[in-house]
Amino acid sequence: MYIKKILWTITLIGLVAAAIFAYYIYNAMLSPNTAFNNEQAYIYVPTNASYADVVEQLEPLLDDLESFDALAKQKKYNTNLKAGRFAIKKGMTNNDIINSIRSNNLPVQLAFNNQESIAKLAGRVSQQIEADSSDLLEAMTDEAFLTKSGFNKKSALGMYIPNSYEFFWNSSAETFRDRMLKEYNRFWNESRNAKAKAIGLSRDEVMTLASIVHEESKQPSEQPRIAGVYLNRIRIGMPLQADPTLKFAAYQLPQYKNTVIKRVLNVHKEIASPYNTYKNSGLPPGLITMPDITAIDAVLNPEKHNYIYFAADAKKIGYHKFAKTLAQHNQNAREYQRYLSAQGINK
């Protein structure tokens, strides 16, 4: 009888222990363990992050960090981290969370446009993926890469076609750069290459002219007409005389740092620079900014006309008046200069 009581006691203890263990397993694996009200939250696990780094991000998102920690160690997540961007959905269990941050690296939509230089592009991209701006700048200006890819430091910005692209957050600087080269070559399809050949320009020259067109007008409806003006000037051997190139040349000089040129003056036309298209014939040696796709396609699909000149329209700001003769152009230009003076814009 005494032995039976001992066996029953042992059995009861075992059942209680099993119940406690089952309850623990339920809480650790099957019970919801999120502490936020949004539908989902994200954590970003850097390359070479430690388990402690992950726990620090998770702590404000979880109701019970200890149960998560116990299960993570049991499932060996703490020694097998994956870098990336991961989602934790409201109501997830510890098991769901571990499975998500172990294997469900989510991409980000990386977007950029209208960047004035490779350095500024690197800064913009570094805000969206793990790679920092210095690593990006180094990769994007690497001379061996540029030479192999058919670029140089003056034309390098043209490799980056402004758009939205899907990347994993933990992409390296080299991964970003190499992907952009593939996107550039994809952009330059058979049709665009044929159009560039038809107007007598290389890819680099198209991108350079497109950067000027982009700076002249942000209006897609008149960009093909402006492109046509510049191509007409190239065709007859006339200097481009593009004001945006003067601004670009000026901004390279110490006295124009941290300034905004609102009115191009004769003094700017005297700047000694290969980007001064009043003094130098043909296209400048590289892009003056990142053109948008509408400006690129405007150069490739220029409006055919006999206009040689254009000036900003004082009555329709953001647009231009076009002229076939210098006399008509001078009249248009004087009208706009009077408008600038009336607005107190003198430099």
Score class of each variant (00 low, 15 high):
Asn78Ala: 11
Lys90Ser: 08
Glu66Leu: 13
Glu116Gly: 14
Ser149Thr: 12
Gln109Asn: 09
Ala131Arg: 15
Asp69Ile: 15
Asn163Ile: 06
Glu190Ile: 14
Gly84Phe: 02
Ser171Asn: 05
Leu136Thr: 08
Arg85Trp: 01
Lys90Leu: 04
Lys148Gly: 07
Met180Cys: 12
Lys89Thr: 12
Ser202Thr: 15
Asn80Glu: 08
Ile97Tyr: 01
Ser67Leu: 11
Ser100Tyr: 06
Leu146Trp: 03
Ile97Lys: 14
Ala173His: 09
Phe151Cys: 12
Ser155Gln: 10
Thr175Lys: 07
Gln115Gly: 07
Ala87Cys: 11
Ser67Gly: 13
Val125Gly: 08
Trp169Glu: 07
Met207Pro: 11
Phe86Gly: 12
Glu143Asp: 12
Ile129Cys: 06
Arg179Val: 06
Ala156Tyr: 01
Ala173Met: 11
Met207Trp: 02
Glu174Gln: 14
Ala83Val: 08
Met92Ile: 09
Phe145Cys: 03
Asn113Phe: 04
Arg177Cys: 01
Lys182Gly: 05
Ile129Trp: 04
Asp69Gly: 14
Tyr77Phe: 09
Leu136Glu: 02
Phe68Cys: 05
Lys197Val: 05
Thr175Met: 12
Gly123Leu: 08
Ala72Pro: 03
Arg186Lys: 15
Phe145Gly: 05
Ser133Thr: 10
Leu137Pro: 01
Asn78Phe: 06
Lys153Ala: 10
Asn94Ile: 08
Ser164Met: 06
Arg177Thr: 13
Lys82Asn: 12
Ser103Asp: 00
Val108Pro: 05
Ala196Trp: 04
Leu110Asp: 03
Ile97Pro: 06
Arg179Glu: 00
Phe86Lys: 12
Ser155Tyr: 02
Arg102Lys: 14
Asp142Glu: 07
